[in-house]
């Protein structure tokens, strides 16, 4: 199995309290993988750790068997829609063009080929007619599609999306699903954080079941079992939470040396 993403013994803490304990799994290339778990199970934190936005207390992540720094241009990240202020003075096109910014061409101006790529990305999410629209005038679903278009404009091999299906209309949901299939057919890898168990089985090939610790990982048919779902959604592990609280209260760290 060719591995797109590997997390090794990953522990992440906020204010000392671990929100992810020793997460250890591999995700194959060319599949649509859903990271599933109840609210507060650390799904977004996991993505942030993968994307280098939070520093793990221990462990590491590898993408295509390399550090994030070496493969940055092959990875594309779609943050949660609510993570930005949509009243920012910018048009849809402005935002999608941000997908063409690269660390290697800091001073380079956006050129025509960047614009062509952005137009193509907008077309793929059915948003081309809105390209001059001010972003504050978009509906939630349209905002989500703009974020996905920005990510497509990057031209990556691995797409990591944080809750793209939350609060979107039926048209957007369908547009995203079609895109996911198309990406898969092109051999791209997609990892999606998702909280709705009902739809997860239809959307994804692989599942990572999470609830502050890894519950299970594998092809969806192996994962959608009563006992595993019960384990993930049946509440947090009591002792684990208590120890997490203790670490915070007493001012310890989750590793002896840091």
């Amino acid at each position: 199995m060719e591995v797109a993403l590997e997390t090794h013994n990953l522990t992440v803490s906020y204010n000392r309290r671990p929100v992810l304990w020793n997460i250890d799994f591999k995700i194959p290339v060319g599949q649509i993988t859903g990271i599933i778990g109840p609210n507060g199970s650390g799904k977004t934190t996991l993505l942030k750790a993968i994307m280098g936005l939070v520093k793990p207390s221990s462990g590491y992540c590898k993408l295509f068997d390399q550090d994030l720094k070496q493969v940055r241009e092959r990875i594309s990240y779609v943050p949660q829609r609510e993570s930005v202020d949509w009243d920012f003075p910018a048009s849809v096109m402005d935002i999608v063009l941000m997908g063409r910014y690269k660390s290697s061409n800091l001073f380079k101006r956006i050129n025509q080929s960047d614009r062509d790529i952005a137009v193509e990305a907008l077309e793929k999410v059915n948003m081309l007619e809105f390209s001059n629209r001010q972003i504050s005038q978009l509906s939630g679903g349209q905002q989500q599609r703009v974020f996905i278009a920005r990510s497509l404009a990057q031209g990556a091999d691995l797409y990591i999306m944080d809750e793209p299906f939350v609060g979107v209309d039926a048209a957007t949901e369908e547009a995203i699903l079609n895109l996911l299939t198309e990406m898969k057919n092109q051999g791209k890898t997609v990892i999606v954080v998702h909280h709705d168990l009902q739809t997860a089985k239809d959307y994804f090939d692989w599942i990572v079941l999470l609830n502050t610790r890894l519950v299970a990982v594998g092809p969806k048919d192996d994962i959608f079992r009563e006992d595993l779902l019960q384990e993930a959604y049946g509440g947090k592990l009591n002792v684990l939470s208590k120890v997490g609280d203790l670490i915070k209260e007493k001012g310890f760290s989750v590793r002896e040396r840091k």
């Binding site: 940055r72 241009e73 990240y77 935002i95 001073f107």
Partner: peptide
């Protein structure tokens, strides 16, 4: 003016700027 587009991005969505490797 020199850093205009980068400043625009870090004002709108700093996390994304970090992820694509901007300093």
């Amino acid at each position: 003016l020199l850093f205009y587009k980068e400043f625009k991005l870090i004002s709108f969505n700093p996390d994304y700027a970090k992820v694509i490797g901007l300093p």
